[in-house]
Computed example of a mutant assay.
Amino acid sequence: MKSSQVTSSLNSRFYKIIIVFVVAIVLVFSLIIINPLSELNYILALEFSWNTFTDLLWFGLLGWVITESSILVSSYLDRLLPWEQFSGKRFFLQLLAQCICVVVLMSFLLWLTDFLLTPNEGNTEEDWMGFRQVLFISIILSFIVTAIHTGNHLIVNWKNSITEANELKQSSLQSQLQSLKLQLDPHFMFNNFSTLSSLISESPVEAQLFLERLSEVHRYMLYNLDRNIIPLKEELDFISAYIYLIKIRFSENLQIEVAGVEDFLHKGIPPITLQLLIENAVKHNIASRSQPLHIRIFPENDQLLVVNNIQRMPSSLPSSRIGLKNIINRYKLLSGQLPEITETDFDFVVKVPLLPLNQNS
């Protein structure tokens, strides 16, 4: 933080030095344009001497006063009347304040210069004309400096507002993702507690083993709560453990096949996606010895397909559709690619895009 503040301060000083130098040069050339013969002859007659050095310092001082007064007035009005809220009032007040400030300061400097260099000489008409010319040019240069400063100020504020908006958007997306991921826990646990309850009375040994595997799977889910995308390999490892649990519920009535994924293990997928799709297929279809449910998981291009044969239950329970909605909503927040859901006379197909792992945040 301190390093960035020092860098910002150095940049600000360098920025002011450049503006002061440019203002001083423009002031000299403006006087040459207004009085081409007298001023040019005066410059051509100059030679490197103490007087030349003091003249350069004087123009540099005028440039510094114009620049610094313009920036100070603009900075003060930024706090009093921000452009974003009071653009009309700010414009007219800026013009008035700049004119008064520059006229007062430049008049004082010009008077002080005359007083110190020519204390006993009166001012001629030519001197008064030069005085008015310097004031006019100074006011114009002050407006230009203010325009540069204000433009820079508005651009910085615009960039900051974009950064803040992006941060707020990212924070909102993360909050939505976190909310969606929290849905996974009760959805998963609800579908397995009933199995555990029946196993306790039928086979305490299997119930104990089921509970151990359930705790491992649940630990995996908690571990990935803060991760938006995980490698496909990790998801498939988790599915292997999950298949053990679901096989206890359905035995050979459920067949799950994972094939052809070796070349896609480096791709990414939102965690628990495959578990939700398997659970969705089991929930809505008959899985019996006479009608086994087949689930196939395999890649196609940059998508992973989860396909199950359709054999709907005669009287299925009302569905909350948490699983599919959860997957779709997470993909909406993570990627422009969305899952494709198609249904034929024989199969229910869900295609989930495989994402690059560098999207993970």
Rank of each mutant, 00 (worst) to 15 (best):
L338R: 11
R227Y: 13
I229W: 01
S3M: 10
D302E: 05
N11H: 12
R90A: 07
L56I: 14
E47W: 01
V26R: 02
I34S: 06
S171L: 14
V102T: 15
N120H: 07
Q291E: 14
I100Y: 03
P271V: 02
L112H: 05
L338I: 10
N358G: 04
T7K: 15
S38Y: 03
F346V: 12
A241Y: 10
I100Q: 11
A281R: 06
H294S: 09
V282S: 11
L265V: 07
S161D: 09
I246Q: 12
Q174R: 15
R289S: 14
Q311W: 08
D226N: 15
S288N: 02
Y331C: 01
D55L: 14
I200T: 01
I286V: 15
W50M: 15
N51E: 13
E202V: 06
Y223R: 12
L56F: 12
A147Q: 11
W111S: 14
F188S: 01
L196I: 11
Q291L: 05
S361G: 11
S9F: 08
M106K: 00
S316A: 04
I139R: 09
F193W: 06
I33E: 11
Q170P: 05
K267Y: 09
K283T: 09
S197C: 10
N280Q: 01
F298G: 09
L40A: 14
L81V: 04
F136R: 13
S107R: 04
Y223Q: 10
Q359F: 01
Q291C: 00
S319I: 03
D302H: 14
K2M: 07
Q98M: 10
E235I: 02
E206C: 05
Q94K: 03
N329R: 13
D302M: 01
S203E: 09
M189H: 06
D226F: 10
G151N: 01
D78Q: 04
N301C: 00
E39G: 02
N152C: 05
S8N: 15
Q183W: 06
M189C: 04
G130T: 05
S197F: 14
F59T: 10
H218T: 11
N358K: 12
N41Q: 12
S179H: 00
A241S: 14
I140W: 04
I148E: 07
F48W: 15
W58Y: 07
L293E: 06
P353G: 00
Q208G: 06
D185G: 10
L182D: 01
W111R: 10
L80G: 08
F53N: 11
R321K: 03
H294F: 13
E279Y: 02
N329C: 09
M221W: 03
L222T: 08
I295T: 00
S74D: 13
S288W: 04
